[in-house]
Design a protein around this nucleic acid. Sequence first.
DNA 1: CGCCCTATTGATAAACTTCAAGTTATGTGG
DNA 2: CCACATAACTTGAAGTTTATCAATAGGGCG
Lengths: 244, 244
Amino acid sequence: MFANSLNVRPLFEETSPAREQCSLGALFDRSQLEHATAGQIVFFEGDRALHVFAIREGNLRICRQLHDGRRVITGFLTKSDIVGVSFKNRYLYSAEALDDVVFQRQTKMAFEKQLLARPDLRPVLLSQLCDEVAAAQDQMVLLSCKSAEERLCSFLLGRLRKSMAHGCQTNVINLPMTRLDIADYLGLTIETVSRTVTKLAGQGILSAGRRHEILVLKKSGLVERAGEDLAADDGLDTPGYYHH
Amino acid sequence: MFANSLNVRPLFEETSPAREQCSLGALFDRSQLEHATAGQIVFFEGDRALHVFAIREGNLRICRQLHDGRRVITGFLTKSDIVGVSFKNRYLYSAEALDDVVFQRQTKMAFEKQLLARPDLRPVLLSQLCDEVAAAQDQMVLLSCKSAEERLCSFLLGRLRKSMAHGCQTNVINLPMTRLDIADYLGLTIETVSRTVTKLAGQGILSAGRRHEILVLKKSGLVERAGEDLAADDGLDTPGYYHH
DNA sequence: CGCCCTATTGATAAACTTCAAGTTATGTGG
DNA sequence: CCACATAACTTGAAGTTTATCAATAGGGCG
């Protein structure tokens, strides 16, 4: 969803050539495709931040570590997201493959240069950054005051909405990450995540099918339990703003 | 510190005319000064987001509410910060005065227009957004896996560093907010904040003087207890990036 | 001086974590 | 294709941290 950096969700759904032109992904067209498999690390927290990456296939987790080994996942990225954009010398987080990932890279310099050549993409960059800040705030609300059940329901709803926004009309939630990843994302332990899933399944809200899939039986049950905020879903994009 | 929106901390310390030109605050020069007193709300979560604000004096808290009344403070803003920049139709948070606040406002439209006239400020805007995302991630780490003591120490250290960056060379931390505000910012209760302050005072780390001031006796004690990240303080700004 | 708001302190309870054991997938090599 | 090994997940019991409830103390302002 986000990361310090942006993760570009293009304004349009799919990456047909015409639409691709309007997303930041277009800036990577000339870069060669690279691959990573589950567990591989694309870049490490603390590495010199020389490149910006565009994800073409697969899923990544964005992690930060405390010195004693505690881990926080600040976001999950997927196809068409961009990662690594920031003003810092070093990456503030590492990016690790959850599954088979295909991506492209560019040096920051080249990325910046390309961006200058495409002033129409400037508002896209700003918009992506604003979305990222908004997502980070949602996560702060979640971590700050939601219960385990609320956190899990919010998370599942978020994934469901995202997949629906991308065109999938099922009620199957795809979870490319492990329970431990979910726990580290939600500020819980793996045991609490597991127990909460079991509880929701017992209440007929969902059904845990295969390991990386959850079937939603009562979306309304998830919504009720997610403890969303006051202003939720009220904030539509303002198309004109910054867009010229 | 941050908010969904940006809160501009200008690259230079004070607002001498020459330096002011290089910060986004310059875009508000023609706006009239407005005032708010402690507890007054500059704008509400859910309001139509028509304006962008520049803070000239005083302190604000940035709040979000869940439907059942739980409150999260996602940041504190102060002199020279800017708030309200985003791509959304409605504010995703409310901004409330902690003390006597002086601010200026502009319509989003005018702000955007001014920005077009000052392309040199574009990288400043981007940089501020990146900083805001970075700060939000730090807060996610704090909320996700730090203990009450670590949270409080991180918070106090952050305030201390900020005031030192602004030129103050004391070890007195100014806290314009109440304990409840601190609690809502750190994802704790007021009682836990109070107990933790007492505990740290007992260990000779700090001394709680007047209500809105804390005296730091052993900064190293705070650092040890803050549980900072791996990559902390390693990421210096890359001055050239995006700056033309 | 006294009131009200804020903060502190104490006792109890709840939620979640931790530790431990057991179960189910997954994938690999025979 | 099946058996086995390993990792991922689930479930249970005990332990901690922090929240909650309740009472008290301190500060600022009329």
